[in-house]
């Protein structure tokens, strides 16, 4: 019976993918190499800049910011002070800044790329039909898989980490932008058209402002996914809290691993509450 199934010999998808990646790497190295170099330098500079600021000042700034954006409540501010001090106390401040740099840049890039694609999707059924399955693919493919071409393109370090994170974390922003714009009430869209808006006037004066809350929810998700991805990216040499977890794993050090994990959780909570509050406040 299996002969039926064996009728077609094994398709060399793995080899094809490899060849394709090799081809991409060699063909576009003129593009990848400068990115690796310049963007890598830029990221190192950013995290060095953050490290040059005394930890106390950063903690105070984060706390004051938390107090202001949460509507003058103390909860988040107190949590930020205690949490960040704890990370400092455990000697993980440098790793924290590195991880934060990665998350920050990966998220910014995701938003810059994701929002326009979301707008495109909301405006065209064809675009939506093409992009939706790609997004599904991007999100369901195990995140580790992205690390492999990332290394091929950009070597090891921060840059491939950001690249992998981009692929993994951009979809929510695209989806929510599309959703937000499509949810804008038909009457409002009609109103803007009835008064003679051009396409871009409609987009910037009505659709994007109306979809803002939804888009921000998507961005919040993107930021959280970026964080989870930059932790995984430690496997290809991205520095930060993830690397601590990874090395504890390799050496079976439960304690260190746990401490670094808690650090990630604290960072996640602070970032999450920050983005959510920014969203709520502007509504």
């Amino acid at each position: 019976m299996d002969k039926v199934l064996d009728f077609i010999p094994s398709i060399p998808l793995a080899e094809m993918t490899e060849d394709f990646t090799d081809w991409l790497t060699s063909t576009f190295s003129f593009l990848f190499d400068p990115i690796k170099e310049h963007f890598g330098t830029f990221m190192e500079t950013t995290s060095e800049f953050l490290l040059n600021i005394p930890a106390l000042i950063i903690i105070v700034l984060v706390a004051v910011g938390a107090f202001l954006i949460s509507g003058k409540k103390f909860g988040l501010a107190v949590f930020s002070i205690v949490g960040l001090w704890f990370i400092y106390n455990q000697g993980l401040w440098e790793q924290l800044m590195e991880t934060f740099t990665l998350v920050l840049l990966a998220s910014i890039l995701s938003v810059i790329i994701g929002v326009p694609f979301g707008i495109l999707m909301s405006k065209s059924r064809t675009a939506e039909a093409i992009i939706t399955p790609i997004l599904d693919f991007m999100q369901t493919m195990p995140a580790f898989v992205y690390l492999i071409p990332a290394v091929a393109f950009f070597g090891i370090g921060m840059v491939p980490g950001v690249f992998a994170s981009l692929i993994f974390a951009t979809p929510p922003t695209v989806r929510f932008t599309n959703l937000g714009i499509r949810q804008v009430s038909k009457e409002l869209v009609e109103a803007s058209e009835a008064f003679g808006s051009t396409g871009s006037q409609k987009l910037f004066k009505v659709e994007l402002p109306m979809a803002k809350a939804t888009i921000m929810a998507g961005i919040n998700q993107t930021v959280m996914l970026s964080l989870s991805m930059v932790v995984i990216a430690s496997m290809i040499g991205a520095p930060g809290l993830g690397r601590e977890v990874l090395s504890s794993l390799q050496r079976a050090q439960v304690g260190t691993g746990f401490v670094a994990g808690v650090g990630i959780v604290i960072l996640a909570i602070v970032i999450d509450r920050y983005t959510q509050n920014v969203n709520a406040k502007k509504e």
Partner: peptide, 9 residues
């Protein structure tokens, strides 16, 4: 145009 559900921004 004036709309049924006002359609104010």
């Amino acid at each position: 145009m004036v709309f049924q559900r006002f359609a104010l921004f």
